[in-house]
Amino acid sequence: MLDAFGVYHPRRTPLHLLPPWVKLIGLALSAVAIFILRGPTWTLVGLVASLAVLASTLPPPRPTLRGLWPIALLTVLMGGYQWFRGDRAGAAEFAADFLAVACLALALTTSTRLDDAVSLLSRAFRPLRHRISPDSVGLVFALTARAIPEITTILGDSADAARARGLAKSPQATLVPAAVRTFGWALGVGEAITARGLADDPEPDSDGETPEDTRGNVEYPRRRPA
């Protein structure tokens, strides 16, 4: 479904060549600027510029257009809410600003290896290492990126299942199983993270042995596959 949406695509565009930290700081500054600069002109400039930046990373067109749908929907919902509260100009501006920042974030993820972004975040948080593990910050970032397509897939499957049971009109028939499956998926991921040792400190155990000494003493010969 969301196959390649928001995922790194190896290309040689200017944005791909920029170091990840420049892009990350650029994204943060642009987001602040987009929301601070008010008025229709600035809003339009921000939106057009952001779309241009996204286009400059040459994202695969089909998955990107398909992937922009949920973001567009979210934009309409949030804009609609403000519209409903009576702030029409504000609603339009907010929606445009939100869409612009989403496009910039997408430009960042399609032009940056997640591994680089994780390393960058790990480094950025190193000064706080006595309070939070820098690696875990990177891991949380990776997991968030991983959860979005997973949850979208689960929502799609649940909607299909609800439709198959003739319950297309009932939001609960989609949302309840989707929530249960998302929870189950999250539990499984948590377990896998533990099993892969990703939640452990990189320091050796208190017994001070290096990983090499901890191997079992039994050597098994390699069997040829049948």
């Binding site: 990776a142 991921v189 377990e191 993270i193």
Partner: peptide
């Protein structure tokens, strides 16, 4: 799918 975390195989 619960064991795989990163978006590409090598990562």
């Amino acid at each position: 799918s619960s064991q795989l975390i990163m978006p590409t195989a090598i990562e």
